[in-house]
Design a protein around this nucleic acid. Structure first.
Length: 243
DNA sequence: TAGGCCATCTGGTCCT
DNA sequence: AGGACCAGATGGCCTA
């Protein structure tokens, strides 16, 4: 069958999978928005309405007693053991059906009667389906917290894109946190002696307390902060001081 | 129509 | 023994 080459993902916006894999920082956010935006712009369709596997194939039904979306089309399966013509019909009630089978057959030894085997198979299938639905729910939860354009008019992220984007987002957050720690450490260094009490809560925040710019000490505060992070820091009281 | 993505079935393996 | 997890196979839907 056609498999998704690990190296590429042709998203609607033409986003290569390699990009998702190596993305970080601002590029991540740019892409995460661009991806969804491009999806909408390029296709001009409403995913939820026009497509949407859930809507299209009644995904999610199993919970409501209906279970399978009815026979998922006859499947030319290799002439396996049982299963001859019975497709799906998975509205099995594992306990009841198997119980009935067991009661009727009473095959308590290692060998199961075909009917009992079938019942067991259906039960296993239902469990597997449930498991996959749980997995998909978890993925939906992950999509919900990933900063990309969540909109009904935008195609939702694929599973692989969700995972890769999430990974990059975590890396980006870790990077931002590290940067924040260094900034706090630097600021504490400047006023820690003057206000030890106020600085105390921040110290646990900063384990690697080294200001990275040696020239920074000679600069006035706003400049130092700007040199460090690109913009005056809101955390720095000097940056917030009125002239 | 090809390719991408997905849901489902299925058999195998490991764990409780 | 039963359940969870996994990977392969298969077929459907959708888009470019």
């Amino acid at each position: 069958m056609s498999t998704c080459a690990p190296g590429e993902l042709s998203g609607p916006g033409g986003v290569a999978m390699a990009e998702l894999k190596s993305l970080s920082g601002d590029a991540y956010l740019a892409l995460s928005h661009g991806y969804a935006a491009a999806a909408a712009a390029a296709a001009g369709f409403a995913y939820g309405a026009a497509r949407g596997p859930e809507a299209a194939r009644g995904y999610g039904a199993p919970g409501q007693g209906g279970d399978l979306p009815a026979a998922p089309a006859p499947r030319a399966r290799p002439p396996a053991t049982e299963s001859s013509g019975e497709q799906s019909g998975d509205e099995d009630t594992p306990s009841s059906s198997s119980g009935a089978a067991a009661g009727a057959g009473g095959a308590s030894d290692g060998r199961r009667r075909p009917r009992e085997q079938r019942s067991l198979r259906l039960s296993i299938n239902a469990r597997e389906r449930r498991r996959m639905h749980d997995l998909n729910d978890a993925l939906d939860g992950l999509r919900a917290v990933i900063p990309y354009a969540h909109s009904p008019s935008v195609r939702k992220l694929s599973k692989i894109a969700t995972l890769l984007l999430a990974k990059n987002y975590i890396l980006m957050q870790a990077q931002a946190l590290d940067e924040m720690r260094r900034l706090v450490a630097y600021l504490n260094q400047g006023q820690g002696l003057a206000a030890p009490v106020a600085a105390a809560p921040l110290t646990h925040f900063s384990q690697a307390a080294v200001y990275p710019f040696s020239a920074g000490a000679a600069l006035p505060c706003p400049d130092k902060c700007a040199a460090f992070s690109g913009t005056p820091s809101a955390l720095c009281k000097h940056c917030n001081e009125k002239p």
